[in-house]
Amino acid sequence: MNLLAVERIKFFSTRSPWWTAVTALALMLGMSALFASVLEPDQLAVPATQAGYDLALVVVMVMATLAITTEYRFNTIKVAFQAEPRRTRVLLAKTAMVALVAGVLGEVAAFGSWALAKVIRPAADLSIDSGTEWRQVAGVGLVWALGAVLAVAVGALLRQTAGAVTLLLVYALLVENLVGLIPEVGPDVQRWLPFTHANHFVRGTGGQPAGAEVASAPPFGPWGSLAYFAGIVLAVLVIALVTANRRDA
């Protein structure tokens, strides 16, 4: 609990987390407002209110990366390991803190975007009734939390902002999408990549894999996809923890 409080003090005593959080929130709300204003009320459904979720996820991952890489950049990680030499605890506390912030921010952004769309288009049917619709909104927080954990892990592995941010951005925004374009094997590879599953969890419509229509559709249902995404995140985190304990600070 103590270490969580430590990370809370650290997280909220500099400005960059606030800025990135505001940016992510603005992206979500902005995209929702845009879709709500452009689409006709009968076209506007719950998923459209979450249109900005993946772009904002990238911003949240930048925030999470900075939380760890600035520690390396300013060498405060050495001070932190001095104060608590059990490094796993330090890094887990930071991961938990960042994930919590990302998760709460995700829920606020998701329900905020939904509410904003409702205000702009009162006529549209935006009520959240089905489990699918609940997942499409509330799921944003879960994915953001997991994305933040991945970003912390990558940041801890690379230990520098430029490298970690570039890797995450290029990977999440480009690589996963481009892989699908490779002839023959592309779609088969793509359906096993993590962000494809994250998207499938938030945006997937039904309980069934939609393999029939799209070649690269994930092999699981939405909750299976979430579990798969979480598994990959956890694996990277474990690698990061083991590495941090082995190498010199």
């Binding site: 005593s13 500099t14 060498n75 050495k78």
Partner: peptide, 9 residues
């Protein structure tokens, strides 16, 4: 090292 501090904290 005295510079082991986050400059914006």
């Amino acid at each position: 090292d005295a510079k082991w501090v986050h400059p914006n904290r």
